[in-house]
């Protein structure tokens, strides 16, 4: 290479640097990676580990100051009834949102993957993309409008003369409440709405890869549509469902804004983290709480990887 550059009359430090990089591809990789690795390594991983380290400290109950000594006491506090309730509640909510999102997404994804052609393909694609990328807060806000006492949902129940049905539903303990906007049902609806597009895309991606001939073969061999779905389509689409569930589950676990705006006063993990680090100033407990979604997601991702979900991302 250097011989050639002599012949063609190329010289100058830039050319020499370029030739040197060409001969040393490892150095090129190193140079390419250094800036992003420094940025993400120092700013992101650095602060993440600093936070996690703080979960092994504890807070002095009298002075309210952080005691910088290694202890597992803060993790123990996670298992007091009040805190453990928060964790269970959040995980149940995340699971419910994930299941509902999968049920609603499947027909959309299936239609888009198998039947939508040409223009309709684009309509379905953008139809999922636009809500996915629309402002998170605007989406939450739209539900505040819908669920408000004077809002459209109550109005609909009223003109359909179904007000009694809504009231009977709200009278159910746990999922009901004074009105939809301060009930868990409200929180659930908003979570479902906001994370739904994250479920549709991976399911659609995995369904696109199911050859039509497989379903035809299943039918030819005597399976009815239900059986084809149960024994052929669903197993092949499962990686996509799991990939989507990673998003819906993880996003629900960490959110603190939705339950604060639409929901009851009973808190979720995100709200607990937020209030412990803020007004309470109990960074160690906030950090320990933050570890909970990380651990849950770690286990979840490990299982998902074994099921082959990452090929569908």
């Amino acid at each position: 290479m250097s011989d050639l550059s002599l012949h063609t009359g190329r010289s100058g430090p830039l050319t020499r640097l370029s030739d040197w990089l060409w001969r040393n591809p490892r150095m090129l990789i190193l140079l390419l990676l250094t800036p992003p690795a420094l940025w993400l390594g120092i700013i992101y991983l650095g602060s993440l580990f600093a936070l996690l380290a703080q979960s092994f400290f504890s807070i002095d109950e009298f002075s309210g100051l952080i005691v910088y000594e290694f202890t597992l006491k803060t993790y123990g506090e996670l298992f007091t009834p009040a805190n453990f309730d928060i964790i269970v509640r959040t995980v149940v909510m995340a699971a419910a949102v994930t299941v509902a999102a999968a049920l609603i997404s499947f027909p959309i994804a299936y239609y888009a993957a198998r039947y939508a052609k040409g223009k309709w393909k684009a309509v379905f694609y953008l139809g999922v993309m636009l809500p996915l990328w629309s402002s998170y807060l605007v989406k939450v806000y739209s539900w505040k409008l819908i669920l408000a006492k004077e809002g459209i949902l109550n109005w609909l129940f009223e003109i359909l003369h179904m007000k009694w049905l809504l009231e009977a539903y709200l009278a159910i303990p746990v999922i009901g409440g004074n009105s939809l906007s301060v009930s868990w049902t409200g929180t659930f609806l908003v979570f479902l709405y906001v994370w739904l597009p994250f479920m549709v895309l991976p399911i659609q991606a995995s369904l696109e890869r199911v050859p039509t001939s497989m379903l035809e073969a299943s039918g030819d061999l005597g399976a009815n549509p239900g059986q084809s779905f149960r024994y052929v389509l669903l197993p092949l689409a499962l990686p996509g469902v799991i990939a989507g569930s990673i998003f819906t589950f993880s996003l629900t676990l960490g959110d603190y804004i939705i339950p604060q705006i639409v929901g009851s006063s009973r808190r979720f993990i995100g709200q607990a983290v937020y209030s412990y680090q803020g007004t309470a100033g109990n960074i160690p407990l906030a950090a320990a709480f933050a570890v909970v979604p990380i651990v849950i997601m770690g286990v979840y991702l490990w299982v998902a990887k074994r099921k082959g979900a990452f090929d569908a991302l």
Binding site: S47, A50, L51, L253, G254, Q277, A290
Partner: peptide, 13 residues
């Protein structure tokens, strides 16, 4: 990872 974790990590850093 949930955004709140990125958020409080940065803030405490």
């Amino acid at each position: 990872l949930p955004g709140i974790i990125t958020g409080i990590s940065l803030r405490s850093a």
